[in-house]
Simulated scan of single mutants.
Amino acid sequence: MVGNEILPKLVRVFAVTTLMRRRKMKKIVALLVCMFLWSCLSTQAGYAKDEKKADWPKHISWSSPSGPKWTTAVGFTALIQKYTGVSSSALGPSGGTMADIQSLVSKNAEIAWNSNPSVHEAWIGGGAYKKMGPQKWIRALSGGYEAFWLIIARGNSDIKSFKDIKGHRWGGDVMIGSDLTDQTRDGLLKIHGMTKRDYKSFPITKFAELVDMMKEGRVDVVAFFAGTPSPYAIELATAMDLTWISLEPEAAKKVPETLYGHQAGIIRAGSYKGQTKDVIAAAHMTIPIVHEDLHEDVVYGIMKALFDHPDEMEAIHPSAKDFARKPATLQVTAPYHRGAVRYYKEKGLWTAELENLQKKILGQ
């Protein structure tokens, strides 16, 4: 009798235990499936968590001077942080191209804006980089935006062309020395058969000072590098009448042969208040560069964070439209980083021409 009562209880206990085990196994299997899918997605995105621990820095800094470069550096690092989960921010504003190069040398920054002409000089150890020697560690991430050397005169002055600056008060010579400003100014002076003795120089420490100098009447003409639109040019055009100095066609033709890494660019009419005609100006490409020691996975992850999201890049600053959708370009003066090459090959953007350029710059 007792045995007959115990047997059904044992059967029920066994059934319940079996059911619980099955449910537990289902949970374990479901958990394993989720972990597997997460691993696949993380690896596919290029930001695997284990890779970050091993290779990614705790923080990514983008060294940049003021102006549009600073605006884009702030916005682009926000994208890097958003899509990689790694803390990122802009570093600066810096003192210019040489300061940005030094930030990468000292490992204070992982990325920096720089101009093609300055990158070339640093790569070969020429010009302002003679004492430092060749900087063969420089690697490019992508193309960039076109920066123009704007030459703007007061509207009530008699300055209508570059040669007219003779005898006038000039604002634009950087007091602490700027390899790019010096290159461009000296090149244009040479093209026009002039020297620094032909004008009265009012040196500056940063381009932002030029706005007040013009407003207060301390100078007759200013010159500075900027993308389009430039906040300095917008402020000046809003505050006063200006004359936008355009290079003559013959002078424009001599820009590429006189100034390595430069070309004659066009600032379209209507870009600024009162600018009714196209303006021809010396221009160069500003590109993001990194140190060759930066891990390939890190650079690849940065490339995905930026160039997989061109709409968000373009929303940060109009200049991003120059390269957000076509990052791979032949207009670089340093070799591409291996992490960038990996990204371009994956996207089908790495061409035979780019491969030849890479080998040429590396001397292979």
Rank of each mutant, 00 (worst) to 15 (best):
S230G: 12
P203M: 02
V290R: 12
A233F: 14
P288I: 14
E51R: 04
S39P: 01
E248D: 15
A352G: 05
S42E: 13
S42G: 08
A153E: 11
D186R: 13
Q183G: 01
K206E: 15
S61W: 13
N156T: 09
E312Q: 10
D308C: 02
W137I: 09
T228L: 14
M98F: 06
W137M: 04
K345D: 10
Y300R: 05
Y47H: 13
D179I: 10
R154M: 06
I280S: 07
F225N: 07
G193Y: 05
V255R: 00
S89I: 03
L349F: 09
A269C: 06
D198R: 01
R338F: 00
K360C: 04
G46D: 03
W123R: 00
R22I: 11
K326E: 06
T205S: 07
E257C: 07
T71V: 07
V11S: 02
G171N: 02
V174G: 04
C40M: 13
L357S: 09
R139K: 01
H295R: 14
L210P: 05
T276G: 12
S115T: 13
S157D: 14
M25K: 03
I176D: 13
I266C: 01
Q81F: 02
K347D: 00
I287A: 00
I361L: 04
W62H: 15
P8A: 14
L10A: 05
P117R: 14
F202S: 12
L37Y: 01
P8N: 15
W70P: 02
S88M: 14
L189Q: 11
A237D: 02
L306V: 09
W137G: 01
A30V: 10
H59D: 08
G193R: 15
G92T: 04
L79R: 02
E51S: 10
H168M: 04
S103G: 07
K160Y: 15
T238A: 12
N116D: 07
S271L: 05
S61M: 13
A226R: 11
M132I: 08
L349H: 03
D220S: 10
K131P: 01
K52E: 06
L32T: 13
F323P: 07
C40R: 05
A239T: 07
L150G: 08
W350H: 10
V255T: 11
K253N: 04
P327N: 07
M313R: 05
L32C: 10
A320N: 14
W170K: 08
P288C: 14
P203H: 06
E314A: 10
S161Y: 11
M303N: 00
K130Y: 04
E257N: 09
Y336W: 03
S142C: 15
R169G: 04
A73G: 02
A223Q: 12
V341I: 04
V13F: 15
K253W: 09
